[in-house]
Simulated assay, not measured.
Amino acid sequence: MTGQRDRWAELTGGEAGEEYAQRFARLAESGHDIHGEAAFCAALLKPAARILDAGCGTGRIAIRLAELGHSCTGVDVDASMLAVARRDAPTQEWVLGDLARLDTLGLSQDFDLALAAGNVIPLLAPGTESVVVRQLAAALRPGGLLVTGMGLDAAHLPLTEPPVTLTEFDHWCSQAGLTLRQRYATWSGDPYSPGCGYAVSVHSRPAA
């Protein structure tokens, strides 16, 4: 562990919850589909699946997945984001905690799917990325899925340059016992090709 703050906290000061929620509210009001990640995940799942939304933020995705009939647990280290999630969906499970210490939060380890959307992986604290991947892999049941979305260039990140490459990420997944199953360029399922600025990846844990 590095002891450093995560890149998200460095960018926002840990007080971006309301602003983040309002941004997506404006997008929805203007007619944009803000549920692409949830629809993507739902297409991979059987009914009433158990989902871990890692870096859940204001709960936008987890709340939608719950509306679709799944059981969702959201974890985030940003208290301002979780405050919005708890206000909007008080009956859902929201946990304040560091993804690098996921195993200390008292969660079960039999999730059907773990989701890290919204550039969660690139915005982790430097040096903790491989630890978080191992933690997420360990939280999955045999045959479970890790779904991630991340920017690969400055145009798709709130950073001047990408801190994580796909090669590094796939290596961490391999070390954690995960296998790449699918990769796309968008949450809509557009084909991925080298040089794309964004990647949506589906890795799987081996079945028992």
Rank of each mutant, 00 (worst) to 15 (best):
G3C: 10
G3R: 11
Q4L: 14
R5M: 11
W8D: 02
G17I: 07
Q22D: 14
F24G: 01
A28C: 00
S30I: 03
S30Q: 14
G31T: 10
I34A: 02
A38F: 11
A43R: 14
K46T: 13
I51C: 03
L52M: 09
A54D: 07
G59P: 07
G59Y: 03
R60N: 00
A62S: 10
I63P: 00
R64I: 00
A66W: 09
E67S: 10
T73H: 12
T73S: 15
V75C: 10
V75I: 13
V77H: 07
A79D: 04
M81C: 11
A83N: 01
V84T: 01
P90K: 06
E93D: 14
L96E: 15
L96F: 05
L96H: 10
D98C: 09
L99I: 02
A100T: 08
A100C: 06
L105T: 13
L107Q: 12
S108A: 13
Q109S: 07
D110C: 12
D112W: 01
L113R: 06
A117P: 10
G118T: 12
L124C: 06
L124P: 05
T128W: 00
E129G: 04
R141M: 10
L145R: 10
G151C: 10
D153M: 02
T160G: 10
P162Q: 07
P162I: 06
T165F: 02
F169G: 00
S174I: 06
G177W: 08
Q182V: 00
A185W: 03
S193P: 00
S193I: 13
R205L: 15
A208L: 14
